[in-house]
Nucleic acid binder design. Structure first.
Lengths: 116, 116
DNA sequence: TATCAATATTGTGATAATCATATATTCCGA
DNA sequence: TCGGAATATATGATTATCACAATATTGATA
């Protein structure tokens, strides 16, 4: 199991999860799972600056999680694989079972509050 | 949807995925899904230094993904929620469908090689 | 209690991720 | 072809992560 091949595979999986490991990217994916959305729509719904959305979309694009479709001057994005819904669903389930990382979560919560 | 509550939830989910976003941690979890393992066993199977394993276990512990059980001087770890298997399975499926992030993966591959 | 084995923690320097701002690019219509 | 709207990329400052080494803790046993 100190196998190099196994290590690489795990590295790829890690890369994939890294793509999901950001609040805004999760928000984007949750929206896209409901259906195709333009950058502008995402920007409005998530209430963040345009370049930020494009930046995060670029990351999701780089990992093939998401797919752009140009339509004139606007670009509509869609989730590449429906199975992502299953994955997020499983995550939600784990979440509901026993809130993951209570310590971390509380820390995050107070940090959030401090920001305002 | 610019809702603060939704943002917090997404932050928690992101934290959870961050816990999975590391090759070694994935390796640990894959092993633990097969059954309880001591730190020493993990260290041997994954072929890394002891402090590194403990470090990554600490991260998984902090996010409540994994659970320690002391047994004399050794500590055995187990996955907290079986649903994690479902989640990793979904990830595997997405992976097989269309290798996620070909660009990133190739970059990783060559980087791995360079290390040797 | 001294010691050893198993595990955990801490400090540190290097690398990578993130946000915000500014600037490009692309496409369409006047 | 010029201007504006929608997206994208570049850049710099800040923060988070990582691997590694050193050290600390804990528990069993002599």
């Amino acid at each position: 199991m100190g196998d190099a091949r196994a290590g690489q595979l795990r590295a790829f999986k890690a890369e994939f999860f890294k793509a999901l490991a950001h609040p805004l990217r999760i928000g984007i994916l949750e929206l896209l799972l409901e259906g195709e959305r333009s950058v502008y729509e995402l920007q409005q719904l998530l209430d963040v600056d345009q370049p930020i959305v494009s930046q995060q979309l670029a990351i999701l694009r780089a990992k093939n999680v998401v797919e752009p479709r140009k339509e004139g001057t606007t670009v509509r994005y869609a989730v590449r694989d429906r199975a992502l819904g299953v994955l997020l669903g499983a995550a939600r389930k784990i979440f509901n079972n026993h809130l993951v990382g209570t310590q971390t979560m509380l820390r995050e919560l107070t940090r959030e509050r401090r920001k305002r």
